[in-house]
Design a protein around this nucleic acid. Structure first.
Length: 565
RNA sequence: GCGGGUGUAGUUCAAUGGUAGAAUGAAAGCUUCCCAAGCUUUAGGCGAGGGUUCGAUUCCCUUCACCCGCUCCA
């Protein structure tokens, strides 16, 4: 059976030509990890480079770019992958990523273990524990309704069901609680933690029709753990960062104090992050080790909405500028319910990856308005929302659950004589996802005539010249008449000019063109008989197949101009 | 994590309880003045582990990986 699927073809090409390999492939691979091969590493470096120069190198801090409220400063950092564990407690990742979860085999629902409670119910010799993840009154009503349904009774027969009450009603299992080793759910009047069951065999999960569908509670810590120092104890437990953003937040003061930036300004970083994803899937799209390109933009709260809109639109344009078709990229504003608790607005930039259904999109980048959540958290401690305001989250003892640094992370504006905590706009892009999107977008199959005029299938990567791993290929048309020597000299000249170039004299010329098409090389230069007489070469365009003659003396300037586009 | 499917050369595919084939790609040579041409030569494979068997790539079990669906994706 031939490969029909477009994504499979892209994966095969990526492997065949050395873009992307499975990690540790000779040992059978490792789920969620990928390696970039000789061409892939160049492609990805070019993606990074395109982002970094757009953000930092080519940024003009004197002039306001089109669409921007004002001019602004931009700087970069590179922060460590392992940070102080308190960073993750305060940021919320520790709590969010460390839950014990229970899966329902029947309904496929997943519950936070410490949210599951319920009551024992008995009728006609049948005894089950009816579980719910709802609170108090709502939970009790839910449990009663579920029990009626399970026993096949009408509403007026509720009294015929015997419910467990209090701590240890007659219905309660008296042996050691099955799940004693786990933190029980918080006590709720009238409902018992699920820990007080003998086993999950007689637990009726919410929405399930039969008891015993729940799995054992399992750790779902999405942060990779390690230890600092040789001693593996809880005190020196550390985490691989699940995002690069915190590196910018905790260095906010350092950057302010050392680099003369003034609000508004952005701090950018490219680096690896790690998430122990439950289901890595879809080639490199969801990996456990991945690279982020993130920028934290600090601005005055009063201007934050304008900056949010500016960055959202600018980041959209970046993808378009580098070859993503408008048909395949959407900018999706999150609905209010979807927003993280601290966010005023978030937009996703999503790409129509070939592995998704038509009309579905996968996230390339999130542009989030984060308010002052991050700087305040790292100053005051972990925050939570209460009556619409962010307040320090308290633990059971009434003290702050996780302490912040206590450092003042506010900003003093010398011009307006105003002190404030800047608001943050965060465009957070996935470098591997962008690389994959560019690869998918570039992938084309077309028909081109061979030397006999017969149409042949051609695979071509129509990569933007800036992203193409190889910019130019040099071919002597034949292996004699001094053509290889002339070609080698031109090859060396391109090397010296710092242009990624390849030399190939192997096989028929058509084959060499196709080889370059497959890896996305935009220009092929062929040295032929006329080079000897007129000192000109042909430059062949990957997309149009057109050839023009260019004098050797003007060759590098000609190509450089074309690469700039 | 659940259910289903698939693992044979770099890639795409065959066949087989008894020495694994092809196409294409790769390398070398000859030829060749512009889009996968021709000829010659070479290298290269049964995902891993265990079991059944005289003998396993083939049958069974486990495991790993990939694909599809669900779930998840702060």
């Amino acid at each position: 059976m031939a490969v029909e699927n477009r994504m499979d073809k892209i994966v095969a090409l990526a492997k065949r030509r050395g873009f992307i390999f499975q990690s540790s492939e000779i040992y059978g691979g490792l789920n969620g990890f990928w390696d970039y091969g000789p061409l892939g590493v160049e492609l990805k470096r070019n993606v990074r480079q395109a982002w970094w120069s757009d953000m930092i190198t080519e940024h003009d801090e004197i002039t306001a770019p089109v669409g921007a409220p004002t001019s602004f400063d931009m700087v970069g950092v590179e922060t460590s992958i392992i940070m102080h564990p308190q960073v993750w407690k305060v940021s919320g990742h520790y709590d969010l990523f460390a839950d014990k979860l229970v899966d329902c085999r029947e309904t496929k629902a997943r519950y936070r273990f410490d949210h599951l409670r319920g009551r024992w119910a008995s009728h006609g010799g049948n005894r089950i524990f009816v579980a719910t993840d709802k609170d108090a009154e709502e939970g009790i009503a839910f449990v009663e309704q579920r029990a009626l349904k399970f026993f096949g009774l009408k509403k007026d027969k509720l009294a015929t069901i015997e419910f467990g009450t209090g701590t240890h009603g007659g219905l309660h299992f008296n042996g050691p609680p099955f799940t004693a080793q786990y933190t029980p759910a918080a006590a709720v009047p009238g409902l018992r933690p699920i820990t007080e069951t003998d086993s999950f065999d007689n637990v009726l999960a919410p929405e399930a029709t039969k008891p015993g569908s729940l799995t054992d509670p399992r750790d779902f810590n999405l942060m990779f753990q390690t230890y600092t120092g040789a001693l593996q104890s809880d005190e020196n437990k550390a985490f691989l960062r699940p995002e690069t953003a915190q590196g910018m937040f905790v260095n906010f003061k350092n950057v302010c104090d050392s680099s003369r930036v003034k609000v508004p300004f952005g701090v950018a970083q490219i680096g690896k992050s790690f998430r122990n994803e439950i289901t890595p899937r879809n080639f490199t799209f969801r990996s456990r080790e991945f690279e982020q390109m993130e920028m934290e933009f600090f601005c005055h709260p009063g201007q934050s909405l304008a900056w949010y809109q500016y960055w959202r639109d600018r980041r959209y344009s970046w993808y378009i500028k580098h070859g993503i078709s408008k048909d395949n990229l959407i900018l999706r504003e999150h609905a209010k319910e979807e927003l993280a608790h601290y966010s005023v607005g978030t937009a996703d930039l999503e790409y129509a990856f070939p592995f998704l259904d038509v009309g579905s999109y996968g996230e390339l980048e999130g542009v989030a308005h984060r308010g002052d959540f991050d700087l305040r958290s790292h100053s005051e401690g972990k925050l939570c929302k209460q009556d619409g305001n962010l307040v320090v989250e308290l633990g059971p003892d009434g003290k702050p659950k996780y302490l912040g640094s206590g450092k003042d992370l506010s900003y003093f504006d010398d011009e307006s004589r105003e002190r404030f905590i800047p608001h943050v706009i965060e465009p957070a892009a996935g470098c591997d996802r962008a690389t994959l999107a560019f690869l998918c977008e570039a992938f084309h199959e077309d028909k081109q005539p061979d030397e006999k005029g017969v149409m042949q299938e051609r695979l071509v990567l129509k990569l933007h010249p800036k992203l193409a791993p190889v910019k130019v290929a040099i071919f002597p048309l034949i292996k004699k008449d001094g053509l290889p020597e002339k070609a080698a000299a031109i090859y060396r000249a391109f090397k010296q000019a710092g242009i990624a170039v390849q030399y190939d004299q192997q096989g028929a010329i058509g084959r060499r063109y196709r080889r370059m098409d497959e890896i996305g090389t935009p220009y092929c230069i062929t040295i032929d008989g006329e080079t000897n007489t007129a000192d000109t070469v042909t430059v062949r365009d990957r997309d149009t197949l057109e050839q023009i003659r260019v004098p050797v003396t003007e060759l590098i300037d000609h190509v450089q101009a074309k690469l700039k586009g």
